[in-house]
């Protein structure tokens, strides 16, 4: 794998991701959410992580969307415009609208944070965190969490291959597959715990729990412009939340005035910056 060197400090991309997510929530508009989610998807493809990000996003979003559709699409108490009705279940325009709003908003969060986690350089993230006096253990846990999905995938594939080599047939309907997956879960969890135990001893011996201040081998790029951007992005996110809570949200004309619920230019800028952090 070539040595990737993103131009941006991971804190800048993290701030961009947080700002995009917060402002999408504050905007509370399906059009904004959809624009942010789509932008993240395009960037993921550009970064070459689309193939890994898509299944991860699907695993998180599919059950969530399904539950939204059942909860709000069929049983939305405030719904007035009834489109169809089966007993107690009513499909209403308002219910569908709410489900759409929530569904796209969640999609935006998930896409933005998955994009961040799939593209951030973990050593950079750990390095900037330790430089900011965050305990290295916290940085390591964060880094391990971000790499957990790939680690679990690799381990699961190994267990499945071992089981297939001893006669487990992975074919048939969803029930059979579910039963097969159940057989892999206990070994998976036990193996991960075992790995963690082994790793802890090795980390200890390499001085990871030493009490002295940690230094960093990598010089993580940072500039005054990036620091300014981080401050502006986080301030804008805070302002957006403030406006939403205070009830002064400028509906329809907010900062752009082209059409109602236009995607916030700040949110899009944040996503664009996230993209610059994405190694080409």
């Amino acid at each position: 794998m070539p040595n990737r060197r993103p131009a941006l400090n991971p804190l800048t991309t993290l701030a961009a991701a947080v700002a995009a997510a917060v402002m999408t929530t504050a905007a509370s508009s399906w059009a904004v959410s959809l624009a942010v989610a789509s932008a993240a998807a395009v960037l993921a493809v550009r970064a070459g992580v689309g193939a890994r990000l898509a299944p991860a996003a699907a695993v998180i979003l599919a059950p969530f969307w399904l539950s939204l559709l059942i909860m709000h699409g069929l049983f939305f108490p405030e719904g007035r415009t009834v489109l169809a009705q089966w007993g107690a279940a009513r499909v209403t325009t308002e219910g569908l609208g709410f489900a759409l709003d929530m569904g796209t908003r969640t999609a935006a969060y998930v896409m933005v944070f998955l994009l961040f986690s799939f593209t951030v350089r973990l050593p950079d993230l750990v390095a900037v965190m330790s430089a900011r006096r965050v305990p290295p253990q916290f940085g390591y846990v964060l880094a391990s969490t971000l790499t957990l999905a790939p680690a679990v995938t690799v381990r699961l594939a190994r267990i499945r291959q071992a089981q297939e080599s001893r006669g487990l047939v992975l074919r048939g309907g969803p029930l059979r597959r579910l039963a097969a997956a159940r057989q892999q879960m206990v070994p998976l969890v036990l193996a991960l715990i075992q790995d963690a135990g082994d790793r802890a001893q090795a980390l200890d011996s390499r001085g990871f729990n030493a009490s002295r201040e940690r230094t960093s081998y990598r010089e993580v790029p940072d500039t005054a412009a990036q620091r300014t951007f981080r401050a502006v992005a986080l301030a804008a996110a805070a302002a957006a939340v403030g406006l939403r809570i205070s009830g002064h949200w400028p509906e329809g004309l907010w900062m752009v005035g082209l059409w109602p619920d236009a995607p916030s230019p700040v949110a899009l800028l944040a996503v664009a910056l996230l993209a610059r952090g994405v190694p080409a």
Partner: peptide, 15 residues
């Protein structure tokens, strides 16, 4: 290189 440096980073060796 980063893996090699890990033990030195933990011991606060300068860059």
């Amino acid at each position: 290189a980063e893996e090699l440096a890990f033990g030195l980073e933990n011991r606060g060796v300068n860059r």
